[in-house]
Simulated scan of single mutants.
Amino acid sequence: MEFPFTINNLFKEKIVKLKYDLLPNGFRGERRDMIDCASKISQILDDMGRASAIAQGLNKPITSGERLRNSEHLVYLLIDPEGKGTVVGLLKVGSKNLYVYDHTGAHHEVKPLCVLDFYVHESKQRMGLGKILYEHMLKEANVLPQDLAIDKPSENFLAFLFKYYGLEHIIPQSNNYVVFDGFFADRPVMNGSAKVQSDHVKDTFDGIPPTVGRHSAFKPVSTMGAILQNVSVNPYQNDGTVPRIAPDIIRPVMKLK
């Protein structure tokens, strides 16, 4: 995405991490320079956030300069320095207090790092740039892909996670977050975990999955088979997980980042 100012004057690295002050790491300048830089970065976040929302079919953006300024979240921007520079990718993460269920139905209070927004500009997709951006975040945060909770993932994002990290077995949740097998491994819990299952959770693990994620967590894999075979399928196994769907089924019908 291009802007009416030179991106290369703002960012000196290919991947830039931003926090509430809306200034790149190591920024040096007078107060007037800081205000100008933060204003331009706010515009970048606003425009990229709107583009991400449109791509995901959302009613309003998840990311903006104002939202980042008033949070403890982090935003990673992927820069293409060619010419005056363009911004080609955005990834927003932040820690959240969540109540989630493991595969047995036990209730946990946790505070994981969450992926809140992820977008690669349409002109730069299918080039592996999304993976470069995601890998940078994983390395800096020192986490594994299965350690993250994903807020309302799109079908494209779920396919991305399956393609590059083999994440396929979703643990059903009653909120908008998606977690995968391995999420609870060696994870400390806040205030312990409850072994009491509500009727809703019991139903979930009796084979009736709740709605999770932006398009329901089970949909990306179930709809692939249904689209190709024109049949209705129940993607859930008896344990509430999603069975393996071969990558060659997903790739032809999904535009991966």
Score class of each variant (00 low, 15 high):
Asp147Tyr: 11
Ala141Ile: 06
Leu144Trp: 07
Asn156Leu: 00
Met137Gln: 10
Ile150Glu: 12
Leu158Thr: 14
Leu138Asn: 10
Ser123Thr: 06
Leu138Tyr: 00
Leu133Trp: 02
Leu133Met: 07
Ala149Leu: 12
Lys139Met: 07
Leu158Trp: 02
Glu140Phe: 03
Ala149Asp: 09
Ala159Glu: 04
Leu133Asn: 00
Ala159Ser: 14
Ala149Gln: 11
His121Pro: 01
Gly130Ala: 05
Glu155Leu: 10
Phe157Asn: 04
Val143Gln: 08
Leu129Met: 11
Gln125Pro: 03
Ala159Met: 05
Asn156Thr: 15
Met137Cys: 07
Leu144Glu: 11
Leu129Ile: 14
Lys139Trp: 03
Pro153Gly: 04
Gln125Asp: 01
Leu144Arg: 13
Gln146Asp: 07
Glu122Asn: 08
Gly128Arg: 07
Leu133His: 03
Tyr134Trp: 15
Leu148Thr: 08
Glu122Arg: 10
Val143Glu: 09
Ile132His: 00
Glu122Ser: 12
Ala159Cys: 14
His136Ile: 05
Leu138Trp: 02
Lys152Pro: 00
Asp147Phe: 11
Phe157Asp: 02
Ala141Trp: 07
Asn142Ile: 10
Tyr134Met: 08
His121Asp: 15
Asn142Pro: 01
Ile132Val: 12
His136Val: 10
Asn142Arg: 14
His121Ile: 05
Asp147Ala: 15
Gly130Lys: 01
Phe157Met: 10
Lys131Cys: 02
Pro153Ser: 11
Leu133Cys: 07
Leu138Ile: 06
Gly128Ala: 04
Lys124Pro: 00
Glu135Ile: 07
Arg126Glu: 12
Val143Thr: 06
Leu133Gly: 00
Leu133Pro: 05
Gln146Cys: 14
Ala149His: 13
Ser154His: 03
Met127His: 02
Leu138Cys: 11
Lys131Val: 12
His136Gly: 04
Arg126Gly: 03
Met137Leu: 11
Lys124Ser: 03
Arg126Ile: 12
Leu129Asn: 04
Lys152Met: 09
Leu129Arg: 10
Asp151Tyr: 15
Leu148Ser: 06
Leu148Phe: 06
Glu135Gln: 13
Ala149Trp: 12
Gln146Ile: 03
Glu122Gly: 04
Ala141Cys: 07
Lys131Glu: 06
Glu140Leu: 09
Glu140Lys: 10
Leu129Asp: 02
Lys139Tyr: 04
Ile150Ser: 00
Ser154Tyr: 04
Met127Tyr: 00
Ser154Cys: 06
Asn142Ser: 15
Glu140Thr: 11
Ala141Gln: 12
Ala141Leu: 05
Arg126Met: 12
Ile132Gly: 01
Phe157Gln: 09
His121Trp: 04
Ala159Val: 15
Ala141Asn: 11
Pro145Phe: 06
Pro153Val: 09
Asn156Ile: 04
Ser123Tyr: 02
Ile132Ser: 04
Leu138Met: 09
Ser154Phe: 05
Ala159Thr: 11
Glu135Arg: 05
Pro145Glu: 11
Arg126Ser: 13
Met137Trp: 02
Val143Arg: 13
Lys124Tyr: 13
Glu140Ala: 06
Ile150Thr: 03
Asn142Tyr: 06
Glu135Ala: 09
Leu138Ser: 08
Lys124Met: 03
